[in-house]
Design a binder for these strands. Sequence first.
DNA 1: CCACTGACTACTT
DNA 2: CAAGTAGCCAGTG
Length: 110
Amino acid sequence: MYTRFTQKALNIIYNIPEGKVLTYGRAAALAGKPNGARQISRLLHSMSRKHDLPWHRIINSKGKISLRPSQGYELQKALLESEGVKFSKSDTIDLKVYLWIKPVQMERPY
DNA sequence: CCACTGACTACTT
DNA sequence: CAAGTAGCCAGTG
């Protein structure tokens, strides 16, 4: 079984709307662990396939994709762009525009 | 239980 | 802005 944190994290990730993104840190904080950013990355890595998660909507705090080229970077960028997310010249996403601010009281059960 | 590993972060050089 | 560093903590063996 997974921890409460992990379950909440999955729930959070499911709720990210199209065209919006969350940073690892924000996702972790929303799940109750302000310092659990690294757990988020592992969750995505190990469960995105079986759980059909919108893993591409998670980026790092600098507003950039953390994946390495040829390791999914291009795919993630393409998926985001297809949802309307714009990248700057330096492949950076403007968090002030695209960061998802989770509404209070709205959680779909996982 | 211990050790190790990260798709991380914030801070400091 | 780039590079190094010290915390971070659930999963895995």
